[in-house]
Amino acid sequence: MNIFFQQVLNGLTLGSVYSLVALGLTLVYGILHIPNFAHGAFFMVGAYISFYVAGDLGANFWVAMIVSAAAVAVMAMISERLIFHPLRNSPALHDMIAAIGLLLFLEAVVQAIWGADFHRLPAPYTTILRFADLTAPAQRVLIIGAAIVLMIGLQIFLRRTTTGSTIVATAQNREGAALVGISPLKVSLLTFAISGALAAVAATLFAPINLIYPAMGHLVILKAFVIIILGGMGSIPGAIVGGMVIGFAESFGAFYISNNYKDIIAFVLLVFILSLRPQGLFPSEVR
């Protein structure tokens, strides 16, 4: 029972991180209709900023997370304004190449500052929680709890607030949104800011149970793409469910099949689900 519970916990932990990353990616896709490969670099930079603020400056874990989220949000907005906005009327391929260029640029900058070595962010809570005969490291419970709070918060923001509705409206009909007076530029900036902040928070939560290194965003972004393709490009529920599907598949696959095949499972699942449902699990625009 405890072993099964551990796999559920691992699945939820991985799924929470993947969902947060995929949410940012799917939001940007919904607005711009381009796959933002640089999102993996936002995740990586978020981890490094938290590592610097909590490690070198000695700040509290939560302060580090807030600073990292704010810094990556600003960085994402600058990249939208300086790189993606001028390419708005260019073929989609140009955006994709620009995104890959940004990814490589950010990795080079991080490597120049911190080097190529692995780093680790100390876990803020090292206790092991016990429920009857079940045990759970506090950091994993924290990741799951924080992800749930963020997902609910994001849903409330998008559904219940006027500002959030402008993002959903622009994703559903860009011209229709402009005609009611919504500024597509402001919406794009806001979406990039949210997307960057989500990536930074996910990275900060994940960093204490993983390593920090310049290429850490590669596998995460590839899996996030698998998730949003599975969930339906631009679909918010799809990103959450898709993240959990991949998280659980990896966790149970690693335990019951082989840990060596853990990273392959996401891609096998992609092929399998898309052969049954080519449109993804939740086909739609952002909603």
Binding site: T162, S165, A169, Q172, V180, G181, E285
Partner: peptide, 18 residues
Amino acid sequence: KLFAHMSVAKNLMLGGYV
């Protein structure tokens, strides 16, 4: 050019965005 996946009420309210 409606927001097809939003409710009628929300479409109307967004019409008054300015």
